[in-house]
């Protein structure tokens, strides 16, 4: 079955970021397809490669990147939410005159249309948030 996942909360802030990851991983391991994971609101903070959690803690950002590499996942970050919170890729840095980018591997920045499309294309949309 084709699933789409929406994540509304940031890492280390609310369990939603962990729950979404565990659900996504379990679905993939059962052979389901994840059409897209869409990061919205504070959920965009899952996509910064500048996080350095303690070594004995889970690395939520790397965990997403690794899952994306393993299963060729489409991890999409909402552009408007990202701009507000300083989640930047090369294109956004150029467009907004920033001197750095911080988007983690496997993530891409795009618009809300990607969430709408995921809702249409996937058979189930599962939302994780506060």
């Amino acid at each position: 079955m084709k699933f789409a996942i929406q994540v509304n909360e940031g890492p280390y802030q609310h369990q939603a970021a962990d729950s979404a990851y565990q659900f996504t991983k379990a679905a993939l391991e059962k052979g389901h397809e994840i059409f897209r994971v869409f990061f919205y609101h504070d959920g965009v903070n899952n996509a910064t490669k500048l996080t350095t959690p303690p070594q004995d803690d889970r690395n939520i950002v790397n965990r997403w990147s690794e899952l994306a590499a393993q299963y060729d996942l489409d991890l999409v970050v909402c552009v408007a939410a990202a701009q507000r919170r300083g989640i930047v890729d090369e294109g956004e840095a150029k467009r907004n005159g920033k001197d750095a980018e911080n988007i983690a591997p496997g993530f891409r920045i795009s618009g809300l249309g990607q969430l709408v499309e995921a809702g249409i294309q996937a058979e189930r949309l599962v939302v994780f948030g506060d």
Binding site: F3, F23, K25, A26, A27, K30, V126
Partner: peptide, 11 residues
């Protein structure tokens, strides 16, 4: 249920 069970329920 575990996470696999959660996925089954969603499906």
């Amino acid at each position: 249920v575990d996470y696999a069970g959660f996925v089954d329920l969603a499906a």
